[in-house]
Computed example of a mutant assay.
Amino acid sequence: MCNFTKTGVLIAITMVPDVNRLPILNGLVLIGGRSRRMGSQKEKIRWHGKEQRFYLADLLQNYCENVYISCRPEQINEITANDENTSSYAWLCDRYVDIGPMGGILTALEFQPERAWLVVACDLPMLEAEAVNYLIQKRDPRKIATAFKSPGDNFPEPLFAIWEPHSLSILQQMFAQNKLSPRHVLVQHHALCIQAPDVQTLTNVNTPTEATLAKSMITGKGQGR
């Protein structure tokens, strides 16, 4: 079930983007966090009638050539043993251990380096099709990534972003320097940052209190339609 098992040293090759040929877009749902503050697995919360990991994967299927759910290697046995839905989805085990979401992004880019990756974290319960469509429309393949600005500080949000193939060599260099913040990569290398049409899209949920608030927001949004 684990799609990526390559080991050894990967030599970084700088890829020059061809603006006349848009790289094919894959999707990546990040579920490798340990959910310590939440006290339960965030990717299994049913915000929209199904577990969030499956909701996001199904959503990205409408826009991406292939969609993978990114997980820690030790998660895969529990996932395949306890959930009958797992065979309907593709899983990608992190080859980088304990470096946070950068490990999932690096793994994906090394797995299929010719593809761009639409990366989505599992702790964004307000994310819907309109936001995904808007991000894709605004995509600039000449940049290393296209990302929304975080409403709190206007910095780019790396965990709902399109990472282009030529970001791989940069991420590898940052990893070699033990610089493990995807956000810092986007800032330092001038990713395209755009304003989200709905700031609630980037609502991040990490605690039970935040989860309660998010549920109220989702309910209110549904009643307003």
Rank of each mutant, 00 (worst) to 15 (best):
24 I>N: 06
172 Q>P: 00
191 A>E: 02
37 R>M: 10
60 L>Q: 04
54 F>G: 04
15 M>K: 11
149 K>R: 11
222 G>D: 13
187 V>K: 00
212 T>Q: 15
122 C>Y: 08
20 N>M: 05
171 L>V: 03
218 I>K: 08
157 E>G: 05
62 N>S: 09
112 Q>D: 05
139 R>A: 02
221 K>L: 15
17 P>N: 03
166 H>P: 03
152 G>N: 07
140 D>E: 09
111 F>E: 11
164 E>S: 09
82 N>Q: 10
212 T>P: 06
214 A>K: 03
220 G>D: 14
214 A>L: 08
18 D>F: 00
163 W>G: 11
124 L>N: 03
122 C>R: 01
58 D>W: 02
115 R>F: 02
216 S>T: 15
6 K>H: 13
196 A>N: 08
3 N>I: 11
34 R>T: 15
128 E>P: 02
146 T>L: 02
77 N>I: 14
62 N>L: 09
37 R>A: 14
92 L>E: 05
194 I>M: 02
74 E>I: 14
37 R>E: 15
190 H>Q: 13
28 L>V: 06
157 E>C: 10
199 V>I: 13
5 T>K: 14
182 P>V: 07
59 L>M: 08
182 P>S: 12
37 R>C: 09
13 I>C: 05
133 N>W: 01
51 E>N: 09
77 N>A: 12
41 Q>I: 15
196 A>P: 06
93 C>S: 15
128 E>F: 03
206 N>M: 07
131 A>Q: 05
164 E>Y: 06
200 Q>F: 11
223 Q>R: 15
100 G>C: 12
189 H>F: 12
84 E>S: 05
119 V>N: 00
46 R>S: 15
46 R>I: 13
44 K>A: 10
204 N>Y: 02
69 I>C: 10
183 R>Q: 14
182 P>I: 08
87 S>A: 10
169 S>A: 15
61 Q>R: 09
146 T>G: 01
68 Y>D: 04
3 N>Y: 10
13 I>Q: 06
62 N>F: 03
5 T>Q: 15
117 W>A: 04
184 H>F: 12
145 A>G: 01
27 G>Q: 10
172 Q>Y: 00
35 S>I: 11
105 I>P: 00
115 R>E: 02
110 E>H: 00
154 N>R: 11
160 F>L: 15
195 Q>I: 14
12 A>M: 05
151 P>L: 12
86 T>K: 05
114 E>Y: 01
135 L>E: 06
109 L>D: 00
13 I>S: 08
25 L>M: 06
62 N>A: 04
205 V>S: 00
157 E>A: 11
68 Y>M: 03
